[in-house]
Every structure is written in C-alpha cells, then in structure tokens.
Design a protein around this nucleic acid. Sequence first.
DNA 1: TGCCAGGCGGGGT
DNA 2: ACCCCGCATGGC
Length: 309
Amino acid sequence: MVHGLIVPCLTLKIREKLTWRLVLGAYSFPWEYDGKTGHFVVGDTVLVAETNKDQVEVHVYSLKNDCTDIDEKIIVSFFDLRNSYTEFYEKALKDPLLSEFAKKYYGWRPRQSDLWWATVIGVCQQNASFLQGWKMLASIIKLYGRRILVGNKELLVPPTPNDILKHPELLVQAKTGYRAETIMRVAKLFVEKPSSEIDFYDLISIKGIGEYTASLAMVLARREYWRAPIDRWLKRIIAHVYRVNDREAPKIYRRLWGNYQGLAALATTIALDAVPLRQALKRIDKGKTIPSIMDKPTPANMWMFTEYW
DNA sequence: TGCCAGGCGGGGT
DNA sequence: ACCCCGCATGGC
C-alpha cells in the first residue's frame, strides 16, 4: 500500500470535442474511469478529467508535493491535443471496416501510456484473448497492490519495474504463465536504462519481445502510429476485409494506412469489441463494426465491469 | 477432454 | 525466408 501526498497544481478547461467517453473509457479499468471522471497516473502526476456534457476540465495533481515543472504540456501530450487526427479520420471514413467507427467516434485517440506498462500490456496480449490478457494485467496490478488516494478515490497503480524484480513470484500468481520470464527481462531493462532512452530496438532485442509487442508498445507510449502491430488476429481480418492472402496483409495495410497503421489497428480492436477471430470475421460480414457488446468486458466498456478485475 | 487464443524463439528445411 | 512446434493458462 502506497499513499502519495497529493497536491493540486493546475486546472485546464479543454475546448476540443473528442468523444471523451471513449477517450477516457477505452482500455480503462473501473478505478480509472467511472463514466464521468477519469483518473490517470502520468509520471509523478495524476490527471483527473471531469466531464460535463461535452465540456472537460482536467486537474493536474503532483505526487511529489511540488508543482514546479508542471504545466499544460502534460495534458496536451497525454491527450495529444495538438493533433486533430483529420488525416486519419478522412481515411477511416472511407474504409469498409472503420467507417462506422469513425463516424460515431470521430476524434477519438488513445491516451499516452507509460512505455514500461505499455510493454507489459503487449506481453500479456501474446497468444491470449483480450479477456485473458486484461485479466492478467488487472491481476498484476492488484497483487502488487500499489495505490494512490486522490480525494476519496482510490486509484490502483501498476507495479514499477523494481516491484516486479523484488517479487517475481507474484507474476506467476497473476497467471501470466510463460510470459513471466519476459516481463522480468523487460523490468530489468527499465531498471537499467531510463525509459526516455529506450526505443523499439531495445525492446525487440529482449527475449520474448517480438515485432508485434514492440510495435504495440511504441504505438501506445510514443504515438509511433506508422508502426503496425499486426498479430494473427488482425492479419486474418485484413486478409478477409481487403481480400488478400495473409502473407500480403502487412503490405496492404501499409499501403492503406501509411503513417496511421498503429492507430487503425487500435481502432479495429475497439470497433470489433476485440472478440476472438472467428466471431470477428462473422461480425464484419454482418456489418457490426462498432462496439456493441454489453454483457461482458470489451475495450470500450471494460471500465463498467468491476466484478471481472 | 483437447484445443484454441492479439506471439515468440529455436530448430529444422 | 520460410515452416513447425512447444510453451502456461483459462475457457469452452
């Protein structure tokens, strides 16, 4: 149990209309988003985003009892407010798979992740379903038990690389299986080298991290949207939608999405509720290409399912 | 029960 | 460059 000392530093009213419900809610646990307010730990700060209709106010709190060096850039960067994403959405509106999603959620973009945790997210997605992977992540968070109190809200926070190295046995308890060894090697890298100096090649040279995982991490943490985290799931979907061989899928995706392959890949997982491949292909054939599952967790609604995590 | 699921690496050809 | 297999685990 860790309680940081929380100090309010600044508040910013945001003008951009971003389909905030999805910006704050996609891939969020219940302790991060409750349908109205988002709580996100960003480095040594906590961002609290309060929505009121389509108005949003973001408060930045310091975990270090010190507001020096804290400015609006943290918020701008976290939500990528400097970029409008129009080029992506122009493409998406014309795409057979993403047009409905783009129409309904125009302006959505991923929040910026911490590179360390983004890499763990990637590892937990390896050879596992959406639900299995995110259960692992929730289990890791709960077992290591880092918490921050913001007002009367208790935030659960992912373990640090040092936490992992100190208690590696909890990874097995979290049902990560053979991924535990990989996560430990990742933790070791992040202890040895400052996160800001770690790049794609550092990640991919770790045993257990391949192109998919490293690409996903760089998409989530660095917004390197030109990278293509194409797994078996997306490869088959691409082949199905654009009527090409599996083998040609990466080439076609690059041609179609160019600098936005990573963004398109993430949007696709949300649009199809990350259902397993067979179901995903059926959904595409039926034209159900926006989030629609309500009775179990999906990328779009996982914040509603307290009992699953 | 056995097999699959958002990968990966090692060992074959 | 390919192809193939094993790998922890949970869910069906």
